[in-house]
Amino acid sequence: MSKEMVIQIENARVEMGSRTILSVDHLEISRGERVAVIGNSGSGKTTLMRMLKGYVPCLEGKVVVMGDVFPIRDPQKMKNHHRHIGMIHQHFDLIGRETVWQNVYHGRLGYVSLLKSVFGVCSERDLQICAQAIHEVHLEGKQRRFARTLSGGEQQRVAIARALAQEPTILLADEPVSSLDPALAEDIMDLLVSVCDAYDLTLMMSLHLPELARRYADRILALKNGEIMWDGSSDSLSNDRICEIYEFMGTNGVVNGNGTRASRSAFTWPYGWQGQPLPGG
């Protein structure tokens, strides 16, 4: 019996202005897979994730995530879609002036009615899930600390706990370790993989370093100029292939440091779904 498909993409295309920045002919990801997306800056890694999250619209083709067919017009359905897909960002994107616990609780907001969240009413279940999420990322002692006072690695742990509190099925990690030093990066990668195993999550992460991708993923997608140029198990990705993938970056094989970054002005509110794709994605 084949495994359940959580992501199915056929002929999807994302444009920015008149330029096609992502074009995926065929991609299927089944439940429980650990997929790493590699490629140069601007190759479409972030755009792929933003498309799955529904932040950028795909113009044509078919995108089905967890049975939801894009584009999702119904706000309630979109909300459901959002809470099934946890996302972790390169710069953590926590609310710095709130505590660790509050930031983790933000993951529950999709389940809590507005009235309850205004008056800070937490159900027993919400409390339990947040406590469990904080336990998973080993931050029990720091629940009352403000997020901005934590180190980068700890902040990324909070972001992982926030995503876990969403009770997601899919975890998207957009360059989760790019702003951490190598030792911390391994810690965070170990943690990510272990929580995905523990909760049977499908993990899709974009990574800058092919070594990390080979070590932590079972499947690797290589993007180049917005197209998938390689898709296979991580052991079958040869060094020659990697060189080919990164061939045109023009910096003598050194992987360009910071890849994609959302521009400050890109957040439009609350008409978000129709927003333009971010530059450089």
């Binding site: 959002h82 996302m87 926590l94 933000h106 529950r108 999709g110 995503a163 959302a262 957040f267 978000g272």
Partner: peptide, 10 residues
Amino acid sequence: KPLLALQGTG
């Protein structure tokens, strides 16, 4: 960006 992350939690 943190607001977008919150939006992403639903």
